[in-house]
Design a protein around this nucleic acid. Sequence first.
RNA 1: GGUCCGGUGGCAGAAUGGUGAUGUAGCGGACUGCAAAUCCGCGUAUGUGGGUUCGAUUCCCGCCCGGACCUCCA
Length: 458
Amino acid sequence: MPHVSPSPAPALFLHDSQRRATVPFQPLDPAHIKVYYCGPTVYDLAHIGNLRAMLTADVLVRLLRTLYPRVTFVRNITDVDDKITARARANGEDIGALTQRTTAEFHQDLASLGVLPPDIEPRATHNIGEMQAMIARLIENGHAYAAQGHVLFSVGSFPSYGALSGRNPDELEAGARVEVAPYKKAPGDFVLWKPSDADQPGWDSPWGRGRPGWHIECSAMSHRYLGDSFDIHGGGSDLLFPHHENERAQSLCCFPHSQFANYWVHNAMLLVDGEKMSKSLGNFLTIRDVLAQAPAEALRLLLLGTHYRSTLNYTQAGLNEARKTLDRFYRALSSVPDVPATPVPQTVLAALAEDLNTPRAIAELHVLANQAMGGDREAAGALKAGGALMGLLQGDPAQWFRGESSAEEDAAIENLITERLAAKKARDFTRADALRDQLQAQGIVLEDTKDGTNWRRA
RNA sequence: GGUCCGGUGGCAGAAUGGUGAUGUAGCGGACUGCAAAUCCGCGUAUGUGGGUUCGAUUCCCGCCCGGACCUCCA
């Protein structure tokens, strides 16, 4: 019954932040989709808010790969930043050591969540030359100016400044909470290049030894790896302004006849227990904090359980529920012998094609799981295939239920189960229940079936 | 202050101008020695006040509440 016949791919709709509407996705070149995401600034462990953006990108890219023959996904590493310099100093650590270590930790964390690596992962420090070339070009074009060792982008030189984030540059000044640096011609002008002290990282440049401003790196790297126009640029909604607005301004002024990013995808923020995650509130959660108390897949399912454009409230209860949901999904998969390889079910694909509606896609997985539970092998295959599209359900069910355990542990458990079965056979239920309680105390749950007793970890 | 987003059952979370998914929790039942798992059944929701409409949860306006951004936070 489930949808194994090849069907035409559904049309992809995406919510574009700039158009402020959900619109049909029309690739620049259907033969090759190009996606750029802002990656992490590597000075500390990634938190679950960072993860949300990475997961949104992951599902988007997985979906694009099923709809189009070729996708190039670029996600940068920001390895030069004043936060990095400050942290390295605080740690008494070399900057390179800090960024390398943090990058490795980032990769490990994402890998444990099943987030596929980008095709290209450029580092800012490897692209200083490209940044300088863009800055020089912006100065030539009259869009930037040097002042007191800084180079600043002149916001007034770009009429459509503010179009992405829906801001009026004149109104920005009114509520500005930051002091305007004296070398700025206009308050909204932002730094492309800034001078470095001897103890700050720096590179020689026509404007003196210095380092790039934050925004120019993404313009330089997206241009180098994707060209002056590409399909999708994504990131957290907090990057919309000023980061993405500024990127757009730089890139369009540098390459006036380009489109830069054709679609902008922004995920909403995440709360923890209803409050903004912050170190001072004590509710700051790194990916590793969560993985210490639940399987990575449960975290993944939890984060995909809310649409990416809605605020997501992370709670322990939600994490537990995600875990129970996976129990059911894996139980459905294991209820069917030899789950067949099946195309992605249309119901799941259609949900994701509507602006990455992962909650609806997961609801469709429940429908398939219910069918699989009733013995429908095709549904089980579809469940697994649909899960794969979201990076879920690719594990071994036995592994899911039993987790990591040694052969000795397993043997000990099996022994107690055998003993209990003997007691049951002798109708010594007191003894049998005592053995079951003993296992329960170890976190082992028993399930008696016609064919014997199964066990799993609670 | 400016701009923007949201308020759906106990909880999580979709959708929609015409009887509101999916899950979880709860209740009842089947199965079980008892459980666990599974299956069957049940109930409960559109913040508030107006407007448009034959009909509004959906569109419009006010109000209340929550959240985001407003120069380097995903």
